[in-house]
Amino acid sequence: MKLLIDECLSPQLALRAQQEGHGESSHVVWLGKAGWKDWELKAFILQEDWTFVTVNSVDFRGPKVNPGSAGEYADIDLHAGLICFNGPDFIDRDMQIAMLDAALEMIEDQGGDLVNKVVEVTLADDGGIEIEIHALPSED
């Protein structure tokens, strides 16, 4: 799995992913894609088979209560996975790293396959990290 980190997240996440064995991981800015619109990133992400990591969850997976009903991945039948960070408007770098570590651990525990899945990584009110994985598109 190779991770592409959205520009609104720290580039340190790409370095962390590389340290954790995801050597092809990168950051949007490093690839010269800073400022690209979501739809432009979507085409690049799909073409290059990236698992995308973003805090713009709604923009990519649609509303949490009905994922896939809207957003950039609404019309996608096959993708390498999406990791959505959910929390306050600002998540500091250390917390972003903790969220990525938790997501990577959960993914590994689930067998490492994120094809057509979304990992929701949410900061709980008590400061903990909650993770859930669901299909996108849904398997209904």
Rank of each mutant, 00 (worst) to 15 (best):
K2D: 15
K2M: 13
K2G: 14
I5H: 08
I5P: 04
D6F: 14
D6S: 09
E7C: 01
C8R: 02
C8N: 14
C8M: 05
S10M: 00
S10V: 03
P11D: 07
Q12M: 12
Q12D: 13
Q12C: 09
A17H: 07
Q18W: 09
Q18R: 12
Q19A: 11
E20R: 09
G23F: 06
E24R: 10
V28Q: 09
G32R: 10
G32D: 13
G35C: 13
D38N: 15
W39K: 15
A43I: 03
F44Y: 13
F44Q: 01
L46M: 06
E48W: 04
D49G: 04
D49K: 14
D49R: 13
T51S: 14
T54V: 09
V55Y: 02
V55I: 02
S57H: 08
R61H: 00
G62Y: 06
P63C: 08
K64D: 08
N66R: 13
S69Y: 02
E72L: 03
E72F: 01
L78M: 06
H79W: 09
A80N: 14
A80H: 09
G81E: 05
I83V: 15
F85A: 01
F85I: 07
G87C: 06
G87H: 01
D89L: 01
F90K: 04
F90L: 03
I91F: 10
D92I: 07
R93P: 01
M95V: 09
M99Y: 04
L100Q: 09
L100Y: 07
A102V: 10
E105T: 00
E105F: 06
M106C: 09
E108M: 00
G111W: 01
G112V: 01
G112L: 06
V115Q: 13
V118W: 01
V119P: 00
V121M: 02
A124P: 03
D126N: 15
G127V: 10
E132M: 01
E132D: 06
H134K: 02
L136R: 00
P137L: 14
S138Q: 01
S138T: 03
E139H: 12
D140N: 05
